[in-house]
Design a protein around this nucleic acid. Structure first.
Lengths: 163, 163
DNA sequence: CGGCTGAGTTGACAACTTGAACTCAGCATC
DNA sequence: GATGCTGAGTTCAAGTTGTCAACTCAGCCG
């Protein structure tokens, strides 16, 4: 019997990337996390082509990352805004991880342009410290080294012959 | 004076995505984290077109994510393998974040196919617990809610007029 | 009515992706 | 020493996706 591996196509990373792995999707989510809600805001902030923005917003809505909500400004007709669902909010760790990686390995001479801070809405407990993303195991161990981590098959694993 | 925002184009997320935001880049890194090293392994595991794989591997090497190392199997001529640099290893939290997100929001009926575990090489301290990605501030606070997090300008921030 | 605005749509063109066929260097075999 | 095999690519046509500019469309405002 040949060596077998976990099938790499049957993987949540691949499924996630099918949803948010396109050129602009994560940048749209980033802007949404930063408060953008309206078509024109995304367009102006990102410089994305409008027709692409239309299709990206539609596909993110279809995937459940964004929600389309009507709004009406006084003196204007009803329009639609796009706001993050819980599922969209849940992409924050991914974006913080990418932010950290870029800060460390693709730095600009001036230093990072954005720092994510722990700043609760009720300022009483405001600690204001920078936020980082860390790998932590269920037993509470943190600062895991690469060699201390391994991928194991889960209940849904399928296997393929190793090449 | 108009409201001003942090310039979204001058951002580490955008610079990171320029390197690893293309269709296959993160999947190549995922396979590398799982031990793939050779052209044929990446090709067979991912099913990516060979010419694209060539350009992706080259650009990941140019970006410092992978390193091109010669190897020679007995009875074969010298060839090249691609292995992760420290910079490439540092993408692990990003991939774990995407894995978790996919497991939670894009599940398959059978359950997750991969579980990342804390399993040190020297099994003595093996705890084997699943590994998760968590946001943690420098003061040690964890379990941060969306509303407890904000983006603040860093030293390299540039500003643009709000749209 | 005629112009203004935000939110799109359309269409021509450019860039990227795919898949299949081809090359190429060295080893092994005849 | 010709032939074929293998892994690692390269080339090319066809299809898909992204870009930019121009256009539409609905309602408000004067």
């Amino acid at each position: 019997m040949r060596t077998r591996r976990i099938d790499p196509v049957n993987c949540s990373v691949a499924r996630s990337l099918a949803v948010v792995g396109e050129r602009w999707s994560l940048l749209i989510v980033r802007e949404a996390l930063d408060g953008a809600r309206r078509f024109g805001e995304f367009h102006a902030r990102l410089g994305i082509a409008k027709n692409l923005l239309t299709t990206r917003l539609d596909s993110l809505v279809a995937a459940g990352v964004l929600r389309r909500v009507p709004y009406q400004e006084p003196g204007s007709r009803q329009r639609f805004a796009y706001e993050l669902t819980e599922q969209g909010e849940a992409l924050r760790p991914t974006l913080v991880a990418l932010l950290e990686w870029g800060d460390k390995y693709l730095p600009t001479p001036e230093g990072p342009s954005v720092i994510v801070r722990h700043r609760p809405a009720d300022d009483e407990a405001a600690c204001d410290e920078p936020v980082r993303v860390v790998l932590q195991c269920a037993a509470g161990h943190t600062h895991l080294h690469p060699e201390d981590i391994c991928r194991t098959p889960g209940p849904g694993a399928r296997f393929v012959d190793a090449p």
